[in-house]
Amino acid sequence: MIDIRAAGPMEQFEILPIIALDFAGVDISFTNSSLWMVIATSAIVLFFFLATRRAALIPGRVQSAVEVLYEFVSDLVRDTIGADGRKFFPYVFTLFIFILAANLFGLVPSIPGTPAEIHTFTPTSHLIVTLALAMVTISIVLIYGFWKNGLKFFKLFAPSGLPIYMYALIVPIEIISFLSRPISLAVRLFANMFAGHIILKLFAGFVVSLLSAGGAVMLFGIAPFLGAVAVTALEFLVAALQAYVFAVLTCIYLSDAAHAADH
């Protein structure tokens, strides 16, 4: 007997502890979010392990896929940051692949009848996770920016070649824009995942509502079902695109830090 029910649109985002853990009074339970982070990470590691097990001169299918990803991010980093970008490549690559895997695993349908704790969960649909990733990026930007440029890093807020009275306007705008970067970076990814999954659940909920109405009305259930299929396809695009955008914006911010003194 399978328990069929339409979950509320918010239910999918609930954090459910699987193994209760406590560290120095802080609750660090292994939750469904942790489970899917571990699943995503393990999948990446397995994939890369298979790809690099035998680094062949003529790559196989898996190795080709991994090399395409490598070249993609490598080109992105080189084109955006330049020669200084080489040392950030592992970070940007990890960021990209982690977000991509987390987003995509969130789109795997849950197995009906399994406990809610192991239902599909998208770690990146939680603001705290994306905010943490954004904060890591901004911390690297700040630390590297000050290490590389010293106090000249502040030239980032005052682009040269402007009439002097313009600075009164430009500098506050630049500062606000800089301060809003981590927030926009975090909220963009979070809101995309959040909104996409809510819309998916809403369509799925419509299907269940129409089916439960019974009779001929049930036939209308096909419309939201097709809608859910279309939204799932769109969500795959969004999942890949948001991982790419997060990586691109990280690169742009790092490029700012690397070239702040040249402004």
Partner: peptide
Amino acid sequence: SWPSQLFWLTFTFGILYALM
């Protein structure tokens, strides 16, 4: 739920970064 999420994010992301 934040401490748990942050801890496991750090854990998984850190391992992934180190391996990469």
